[in-house]
Write a protein that binds this DNA or RNA. Structure first.
Lengths: 225, 225
DNA sequence: AGTCACTGTTGATCTGCATCAAGTTCCTTT
DNA sequence: AAAGGAACTTGATGCAGATCAACAGTGACT
């Protein structure tokens, strides 16, 4: 990421590699004190905001290479919970040590600014998704996002397993479980993908993208400046 | 914010105070190169993601003391546009200089991490708002947020002017203009507030809060783990 | 003072998705 | 292998809020 070899080593020294976590384990819970950032090495993690009696809003799904816990820096408490979706390896970066290191390595500080900024940008994209897009567009965007992220990490961008439930997808996208289920069925009927429970094969990524573009136009007759 | 006097002065030296901006002026536009962060001194600014033919998703309203442009650090381009809603004074902080300064002042770096983190936390709250709350709750949350922010800056928390249009509020909250308008009328009928065009008086803040809490429960029968 | 354009309000109607209901399949436990 | 319960699917129905339509208030520019 633009760091010198020796800097990488210093960073490497403060990273803690824990033993693997299992489905259902928590990295942290809402309200617990903030001590470290986490990086997913393998597997996947969801973050979510629990509400009083058991309800939850899923805030994100985190795949290998992605950082978790950035929203806790501000008030030194976690604002959301993080739960492991499948057997996963997760590294821990004690934030105090990291911060101290980043004062001494400007490029590390720079990367950290960028990472935080990227997270903000991503959240803003989600705001547009939830504010303006219909169900179909939301699911298409979700699948394309997964596809892109798998691809970046060297996995197949068109053939993968979902580690999250339909319910969790629905919560993330602001949709009911039933709607998600029906959309998968419909997308399959239309030849966009093949779905068998958790196993997804994207058959026509271009047409999936088309769903997004098409409706980006549709939605803009109202809501204009 | 926990900075030493001399550090404040150093920061002060790189801040640029521009002449006042007027309604409709842009601080920056989507796609333009990122050069500085902006702080609202007086007035208000909206950030929004323009879509092809004139549509837009309002991403935020920024009041005095609030920072704008954090989402542009990552790829050194702005991902959204920022437009002034009323005559406003806005300071500019050239990011290159700021970043350099923050490598030399650890507490400044710390504050910057916190600010970025706070923004992420705020966006995540908005995700929950858009994902799970109904129209009534959204508007209540919006008004309470404004109230809190005015209060913090020493303005009245219960009597203020909206610098944004109903349309912009609707876009921000993922609602149609008409819905926003009807809700204002309803809230007024219920004695929650008094509204006369842009002038708002909150008459029963506790009951407004109640709207949020009440429905936090209501919404959680579904969407449970 | 009159015209125009914009912003906001209100009423009527429509619709996408939530909700309710009833299976079916899969997975875990014993 | 049986039983119980998640997770998922599919169909029927309902409703919150979008959309359509009409109009009123406001302010800017002649």
């Amino acid at each position: 990421m633009g760091l010198e070899q020796e800097d990488v080593e210093k960073l490497d020294q403060i990273v803690r590699r824990n033993r693997p976590l299992h489905r259902g384990d928590h990295l942290f819970r809402e309200g617990s004190p903030f001590q470290a950032l986490y990086i997913v090495k393998t597997g996947s993690v969801k973050t979510y905001a629990p509400s009083e009696e058991g309800g939850e809003q899923v805030l994100g799904f985190h795949l290998p290479g992605e950082l978790i816990g950035l929203d806790a820096i501000e008030n030194e408490r976690h604002n959301c919970s993080a739960k492991v979706l499948e057997t996963s390896a997760v590294c821990e970066i004690p934030f105090g040590e990291f911060e101290e290191l980043s004062t001494r390595i400007p490029s590390l500080q720079h990367q950290m600014y960028r990472l935080l900024s990227r997270e903000i940008g991503h959240d803003e994209e989600m705001l547009t998704l939830l504010g303006k897009k219909n169900a179909e567009e939301r699911l298409a965007a979700f699948l394309l996002s997964l596809s892109k992220r798998f691809k970046r990490r060297g996995f197949s961008p068109s053939d993968f397993y979902l580690s999250m439930s339909r319910h969790e997808i629905g919560s993330y996208l602001g949709l009911a479980v039933e709607t998600v289920s029906r959309l998968f069925t419909r997308f399959q009927e239309e030849g966009l993908l093949k779905v068998e429970r958790k196993h997804i094969q994207l058959l026509d990524i271009d047409r999936l993208r088309g769903i997004l573009d098409r409706d980006a136009n549709r939605g803009s007759r109202r809501q204009s400046t």
